[in-house]
Design a protein around this nucleic acid. Sequence first.
RNA 1: GUGACCGUAGCUCAAGGGUAGAGCACCGGACUGUGGAUCCGGUGGUUGGGGGUUCAAAUCCCCUCGGUCACCCCA
Length: 421
Amino acid sequence: MAPKYKAPRGTQDVLPEVSWRWQRVEAAFREICRRYGYGEIRTPVFEDTELFVHGTGEGTEIVTRQMYSFEDRGGRSLTLRPEGTPSVVRAFLEHGLHSRGVQKFYYIAPIFRYERPQAGRYRQHTQLGVEAIGAPGPDIDAEVIALFHDFLTEISLEGAVTHISSIGCRNCRPALSDALRAFFKPKLDDLCEFCQARYEANPLRILDCGVPADVEARVGAPSALDHICDECRAHFDAVVALLTELDIPHEVDPTIVRGLDYYTRTTFEVVHPSLGAQDVLMGGGRYDGLAEVLGGPATPGIGFGSGLERLLLVLGEEGSSPGPDVYVAAASEEARGPAFKLALELRRAGLSVEIDYIGRALRTQMREANRLRARAVALIGEDEMAAGTVTLRDMATGEQESVPAGQVAERMKSRPGGDGA
RNA sequence: GUGACCGUAGCUCAAGGGUAGAGCACCGGACUGUGGAUCCGGUGGUUGGGGGUUCAAAUCCCCUCGGUCACCCCA
């Protein structure tokens, strides 16, 4: 006990007995992205610190308190990616993709934030994300939300609720902020210290603060949706209409405000009631000003990020990993050589094969085969070696048969339930 | 960053100042070459780490590391 080294705080090891769950969810996400025409993008785990300071936003919690930043040996300030969007937009601009119409990306990438760990919140977590850059219209907004909805269906995750709103554009945001300041001015002293600071810089954020006093203070506050401009309103109404038409369940919730500076117009999140305080499964929105902020031509964009660890928390631990096709058992010390050779031959024939490496008793090998949920056991002992055969036992039925050594793979593939893959 | 609770075998947990235990798991055996059941035996711990109090500390005190929950933040 008390090993010398432990995984750093807020990080975790994913062992083979659970990583198959991760792979299953990742595979489903890749498949849905393929159907929607989103191609995988892989960007560096670290970037120029300035990318996030300007992209994510100087005043955001992420930039001011949560980044893992370091100086490399060349004196450059680098930062472990605390969110995915700036990297993707940076790559989009760097490779001149703005001249190629709408570009759609997806990624599965580790994200790093220095936060106090708790259930559903880690210092390194994995985000499944999507970014669609270059399309200004409401249809792509609906598409991105539909994509996630289909993904949840694909992994059989039930009970998630989609909230959607609009926080306006750079033209109408000032008027919205003014309306909020006017409303909160007489109550300024009642607000929490953070919200008092937000009052000037970004009064919108007061709307989703969780402090009880603030929740009370904002009763009757102006709704973002009532103060956005006609263009933003039309865009939002069109998104909602599309979702309704597509049968994507959603709730309009004017209180959702994302914590990153670059969001414009459509914002959304998907929450799940089984998760407790960290209940956001997916969050995203439109970021029509980001490309410009990063020094590129004005280009609209929209995307989301979804925490893989949280998805797995909701999915729970039902089910079990698939077992090997064949467990090769050696009945004696002398049979271990032929058994090992058989295992390799079966593997080359495309079967997944497990075998004992430490000379355990035959009984224990059988137990192991059972525990692993092997479909069959191929047994080799004195009799088999003499006859050039293998005893093949079906672990579900208990039936055994003698099979010529060279025909085991063939026999397995022809069995019911065998796919030979 | 704030507050609360909790760290004993691989896992789940007993022992609350006086020789660290159980169940599960693992290994072997009963069963001379056969799994999922039962029984028997065995391996395994400087009680998260460090310091202090005491004749004596898993147990009391302090620090530290880690986990959990809430705040906060967010995926």
